[in-house]
Simulated scan of single mutants.
Amino acid sequence: MAITRPPDVGGRTDGEVIGASRGEPERFAEIFQRHWDEIYRYIAQRLGPESAEDVGAETFAVAFRGRQRYDQTRNDARPWLYGIATNLIRQHWRVERRHRRLLARADAQAAGESFDQASDERLTAQRLAPRIASALARLSAAERDLLLLIAWADLTYEEAAQALDVPPGTVGSRLYRIRRKLRRSLGDTNPLRLPEVDA
């Protein structure tokens, strides 16, 4: 499903608004208003709604603090925001993984499964058929991040490259390898042609 980009407020691009917010910090609220819903949805798909509010708020807080470094020639701030959100999602998973290890060491209630399995089950329950979730579990975290930025966030290759801070050509070659891996995992079925599963 294609994402409809919010219209420019008063004809100003994201780059112009962020540039103006360097001298007038309150102007950054326009960036929040334009992009909150989309960034929140992406984070909720990755982490679930319980964590999405906090990670979403932190995404915009990090963006606000880093607005001085934003390249104003980039008219659309979405790739930048998705990159920040992706990094915060990884941090969230690392903290959760560490927390689980501490609980296990303290002989508290043992988590019955690894963090990666729990994450994959959350993805499965929310959006994906079990066979596809199993195939996704075999991808590295970086491969999953790239695939989900393209599939769920509906970013272009160039936008995904900006979000992950890699060259655009790298996105194309990585996606090619990811698709081949998924096809093999699914018994040479094209994952792009699998029937939709009702949520």
Rank of each mutant, 00 (worst) to 15 (best):
R127F: 06
A104Q: 04
V171T: 00
R97E: 15
A133E: 09
Q72T: 15
A57V: 11
S173G: 07
G23Y: 05
F60R: 06
P25V: 08
D14L: 05
P191T: 00
E96S: 07
R22K: 11
E96F: 02
S185V: 02
R41Q: 11
T59Q: 02
E113S: 12
R5C: 06
V62S: 05
E143M: 02
R179N: 08
V62R: 05
I132G: 00
R174Q: 14
T189H: 12
G56Y: 05
V171F: 00
E58G: 08
T4S: 13
G187W: 05
A142M: 03
F32Q: 08
P25Q: 09
E158P: 01
A110F: 11
A135Y: 02
E30I: 14
Y42N: 10
A199K: 12
A161V: 03
G172D: 13
E53L: 14
P49N: 15
F32E: 06
G66K: 14
L182F: 04
G187C: 07
T59P: 08
L149D: 09
A142D: 13
D76E: 09
D54V: 02
H92T: 14
D198I: 10
A108S: 11
A52E: 05
D116P: 04
A161W: 08
A135S: 01
P79A: 08
A137F: 12
P25I: 06
A125R: 15
R12W: 11
P167F: 03
R90C: 07
D37G: 13
A29M: 07
V9H: 04
G10F: 06
I178R: 03
A52M: 05
A160G: 08
G48T: 01
L139S: 05
V17F: 02
L103W: 03
A104K: 05
A141L: 11
G15H: 03
R90V: 14
A142I: 03
Y42W: 03
W80C: 01
S114N: 10
R131E: 15
S21R: 06
T189E: 15
A29C: 01
R131L: 08
R67W: 05
I89H: 01
E58I: 00
D37R: 13
H99K: 12
Q91G: 05
N75M: 13
E26D: 13
R180L: 15
Q68Y: 13
R69I: 11
F28D: 04
W93F: 09
R144G: 07
A133N: 05
Q126D: 10
A110D: 10
Y176A: 14
I43G: 02
G23Q: 14
P6G: 01
Y176G: 12
P168W: 06
R184P: 04
R12S: 12
R100M: 11
E121F: 10
W80F: 15
A118Y: 01
L149E: 03
E159Y: 07
V171I: 08
T189K: 15
T189P: 00
Y42R: 00
L102E: 13
L81E: 01
P195D: 10
T4F: 10
I178A: 02
L175V: 09
D71Y: 04
I89N: 04
A61C: 06
A161I: 01
T86D: 14
R101N: 11
G112N: 09
F60E: 03
R12A: 14
G66D: 10
P79L: 06
F32G: 06
R65H: 06
D8N: 12
S173M: 08
P79T: 06
H99E: 13
Q126S: 13
A52V: 01
G48C: 03
N190Q: 04
E121W: 12
